[in-house]
Computed example of a mutant assay.
Amino acid sequence: MRCPYCGHEDSQVKDSRPTDDGAAIRRRRQCEGCAARFTTFERIQLRELTVVKSEDRREPFDRDKLARSIAIACRKRPIEPVRVERLISGIQRQLETSGESEVTSKQIGELVMDGLRGLDSVAYIRFASVYKEFAEARDFHEFAGTLAGGGDAT
């Protein structure tokens, strides 16, 4: 594993343990060149996923990009980080086990919407405002009304 500080090619694993949700192994490493310590995560990847964007562009699935968008929606909300991590892992697992090597950004967005709806209503509305491209305050009001009324907001 290449050191993120000095670029040295070799590092030594000092500690390994599973993450809280059991979906990854956390490894604490020490660079053999500069002695700096850093953490890596090892996850199971069932298949390579390609995301098909709305303009028919294709790009590799990026778990970190998914995590960032969910983190933005959940910012300053009383949500335990382990629940957010479970949501991210669950979405990735659903995509990988779908049997398809290509998934649309719309499929990913719908999975995030479903997950956030059960996690936190404010995070759900925040994500929806970007995903559904709300243009004015009325859009928020109408969407929140469907949420409060039990209607289908997707």
Rank of each mutant, 00 (worst) to 15 (best):
L46S: 05
V13I: 15
E96A: 06
A137T: 15
K53V: 11
F38R: 07
C31N: 05
K106G: 02
L147K: 02
Q12P: 00
V130Q: 01
R43F: 14
D21I: 05
A23R: 14
R27M: 04
E96G: 08
P60H: 01
M113D: 04
Q94S: 15
D139H: 12
H141F: 14
S54H: 10
T50A: 06
T40A: 06
V112F: 06
K53S: 11
L87N: 07
I108V: 14
D56R: 12
T39L: 10
I25W: 12
R28H: 10
G90Y: 08
E55A: 12
G7T: 01
L147Y: 13
A135E: 15
S98H: 13
A36H: 13
S101H: 12
D10K: 06
F140C: 04
I44H: 06
R29K: 13
F127K: 02
R75K: 09
E102L: 07
A137Q: 13
R93F: 13
V52Y: 04
T50N: 00
F38G: 08
H141I: 15
G118D: 12
D15P: 03
V51M: 09
T97G: 03
P18D: 02
C34H: 06
E96W: 04
R138E: 14
R75M: 04
G7M: 01
S11N: 13
E59D: 09
E133C: 04
E133R: 11
T50Q: 05
Y124M: 06
V103Q: 05
L147T: 06
L119P: 00
R63H: 02
